[in-house]
Design a protein around this nucleic acid. Structure first.
Lengths: 224, 224
DNA sequence: TAGATTGTTAATCGATTAACAATC
DNA sequence: TAGATTGTTAATCGATTAACAATC
């Protein structure tokens, strides 16, 4: 997958995925007025082992002080730097169904440095409709949006149009895609896709739920 | 984390997470009328290496035939059995903000064996409101719902009430939780929590996006 | 100095991959 | 039998963890 490739020689993908969690915890400490913390404190706040915390943070640089700990503000700054939160990233959402509308209205993005600059849909009946303060536009506007700085595309369409939308995003020059459609996207090298699949998450929970309910038959034969 | 614990001696969590993907691909093959496939075919359809496909499937049992491949319908049946898709799982969504409403209206769950049986909110002004064919209820109804079979709780509240809602779900007897709130939940052993964090996903994309834009300075000193 | 805590090394664990014997 | 493909073994890779020297 393109993600691993992009992580080559850099910070491990698993570490990157934990950085936002650390940052969130640090913001919490800062709000409480805590100015210095240990890896143990950060571990407790994030549910990660302290050795892992230290290992993760050491990937970014040496921002702690032995015998003392980490300066909350400085560490938060360094992590936000690593995550590219120094400026706002323009985001476009494609697909104005229930999920797309909910994402468009979601307040949480702005505080994390993401600015929703466009809402798009392939259905021209929706064009011009006003949602969350933005006017719905056709996907053919994508090249123009990329020229204006669009960096990240969010796909919230049904499965059957997701690949087409993905191709249009890629052709327009978008290289980071968050895919909510329950389908695998094929993209060229250099494009990073992350997938969020709501049904899959529930299916994984159902797997565990089932394990609990049934007697622990490790020999699964007798079932069917 | 509770998930790893529950996977002890069983199918590895990473494998479980791929099963829904295989199942989706198999359903696709079945629709096209394909009755038999090789691990190579399934690998191509899911973007996974064929060796991994075989290893994953062998965790469930020996459902292939050497020299021939896998029977599409039989394999799909076995996977859906493992995932607990033999019956519907009752799901409740707590938090009727934008995201909660979108999830309530989402069509994709039903086809995967999930039935949304209740919509809850702590704000009593919303009680009685009708959303997606269901009436919004107070969270104090949870014990009653569990008695009626409720198995999975979805938390779609703001961060600051998520832990409280989680506690109420757990107290009522729910042991599988899908958390959309951007906060870490503390739950007792035996309760499985999966977290979907939209901002975190975007932050991970921003990390990669930033790496692309900047010159590949592997010596990060010169930046700050 | 004594106590605390980082950053890093080495050990462990688990997941991925390649390779191939088993077998249709 | 010859060809194909699984299921599994062994090798590799990467991530986690424990432990501790460095150092405030």
């Amino acid at each position: 997958m393109s993600i691993d490739q992009s992580a080559r020689r850099g910070i491990p993908e698993v570490t990157v995925a934990r950085l936002p969690e650390y940052l969130r915890a640090l913001r919490g400490f800062a709000e409480q007025g805590t100015t210095s913390i240990s890896s143990e404190d950060l571990a407790a706040a994030t549910g990660v082992r302290s050795a892992k915390v230290r290992k993760d943070l050491s990937q970014l640089g040496s921002y702690g002080v032995r015998g003392v700990g980490y300066d909350v503000d400085h560490l938060a700054y360094q992590i936000s730097l690593a995550l590219g939160q120094t400026h706002d990233w323009p985001v476009a959402i494609v697909g104005m169904g229930n999920l797309g509308r909910a994402l468009a209205a979601y307040r949480g993005f702005a505080t994390k440095g993401f600015r929703i600059v466009a809402l798009l849909d392939q259905n021209e009946l929706l064009h011009g409709e006003r949602i969350a303060g933005l006017v719905v536009r056709p996907v053919t506007d994508l090249p123009e949006l990329v020229l204006e700085g669009l960096a990240i595309g969010v796909i919230a369409t049904p499965a059957d149009s997701a690949q087409d939308v993905s191709d249009r995003l890629v052709d327009a020059g978008v290289r980071s895609i968050l895919n909510f459609a329950p389908t695998m996207l094929t993209v060229p090298d250099g494009v990073v896709v992350r997938k969020v699949d709501l049904s899959t998450e529930l299916q994984i929970l159902a797997f565990h739920e089932q394990r609990k309910v049934e007697p622990p038959t490790h020999l699964q034969e007798a079932r069917a």
